[in-house]
């Protein structure tokens, strides 16, 4: 993920971020509220719009990018993501494996 160079926060970037966030919030809520599609399809819509909105927030509200002024922040964030994948992902893997073995 290579983001464009960091720009100082402007009203325009906040408005654009807000518009994108509203859209990415409305889509899953409407999908769930109106029961559009199968359960798997709805869960996929929720996952994709949720991830997209997280990226919109990091880009337009946190103003994170890979230039020199926020590189350390991005490195720390990536390390936290690694920890989360190991700890939360590992927890889910072990518990679902135990559940499958106990139920079998």
């Amino acid at each position: 993920m290579v983001l464009p160079p960091r720009a100082p926060p402007t009203l325009g970037s906040y408005v654009l971020g807000l518009a994108l966030a509203i859209g990415l919030t409305a889509i899953p809520f409407i999908t769930v509220g109106l029961h559009i599609g199968s359960r798997t399809q709805v869960l996929a819509v929720i996952a994709v719009t949720g991830l997209a909105q997280a990226i919109v927030h990091l880009r337009y509200f946190f103003h994170l990018s890979f230039d020199t002024s926020s590189r350390e922040n991005v490195m720390v964030l990536l390390f936290a993501v690694l920890l989360i994948v190991i700890m939360a992902g590992g927890t889910l893997l072990i518990m679902s494996d135990l559940n499958a073995r106990m139920a079998a």
Binding site: N73, L77, F79, A80, M87, A88, T91
Partner: peptide, 23 residues
């Protein structure tokens, strides 16, 4: 940057609460 370190460790706490909820 120090505050950012705190936020990232807080994110780890929340991720484990999310994992607990999913289980």
């Amino acid at each position: 940057l120090g505050f950012w370190l705190y936020l990232c460790s807080d994110a780890v706490i929340f991720s484990l609460l999310f994992a607990t909820y999913c289980i």
